[in-house]
Simulated assay, not measured.
Amino acid sequence: MQVSEHSDALDLEPGIFKRTDPTEIAASLKRSAEHSRRRKGTAFQSAMSMLNFYINRAGRNLPKTQLDTLQRAKGKLREAFGRAA
Score class of each variant (00 low, 15 high):
residue 38 R to Y: 00
residue 76 K to R: 05
residue 3 V to Y: 15
residue 81 F to Q: 00
residue 19 R to L: 05
residue 24 E to F: 08
residue 17 F to H: 01
residue 38 R to P: 00
residue 78 R to P: 07
residue 63 P to G: 03
residue 12 L to P: 00
residue 10 L to H: 01
residue 14 P to S: 07
residue 18 K to N: 11
residue 53 F to C: 04
residue 75 G to M: 07
residue 81 F to V: 01
residue 44 F to R: 01
residue 76 K to G: 05
residue 79 E to V: 11
residue 77 L to F: 02
residue 32 S to F: 04
residue 14 P to G: 06
residue 14 P to T: 04
residue 64 K to M: 14
residue 84 A to H: 13
residue 84 A to W: 15
residue 57 R to C: 08
residue 35 H to D: 15
residue 74 K to S: 03
residue 32 S to T: 05
residue 25 I to F: 02
residue 31 R to T: 07
residue 52 N to A: 09
residue 28 S to V: 11
residue 72 R to V: 07
residue 48 M to H: 08
residue 46 S to I: 04
residue 69 T to L: 05
residue 42 T to G: 14
residue 34 E to M: 08
residue 25 I to C: 04
residue 23 T to Q: 15
residue 50 M to C: 05
residue 85 A to G: 12
residue 40 K to A: 08
residue 13 E to Y: 11
residue 51 L to E: 01
residue 56 N to V: 04
residue 24 E to C: 06
residue 47 A to E: 03
residue 18 K to T: 09
residue 72 R to G: 05
residue 70 L to A: 02
residue 74 K to W: 00
residue 30 K to L: 04
residue 10 L to S: 00
residue 30 K to N: 04
residue 79 E to Y: 14
residue 21 D to T: 08
residue 85 A to Y: 15
residue 21 D to M: 13
residue 12 L to M: 05
residue 25 I to L: 02
residue 12 L to E: 01
residue 48 M to I: 07
residue 56 N to S: 13
residue 34 E to Y: 06
residue 79 E to P: 08
residue 68 D to Q: 10
residue 66 Q to C: 11
residue 46 S to W: 06
residue 12 L to C: 06
residue 26 A to P: 09
residue 56 N to E: 13
residue 6 H to C: 15
residue 45 Q to T: 05
residue 40 K to D: 13
residue 1 M to R: 09
residue 20 T to R: 14
residue 66 Q to Y: 11
residue 67 L to W: 09
residue 59 G to P: 03
residue 83 R to K: 11
residue 63 P to S: 12
residue 60 R to P: 14
residue 2 Q to H: 14
residue 58 A to R: 13
residue 29 L to V: 06
residue 73 A to E: 02
residue 69 T to V: 11
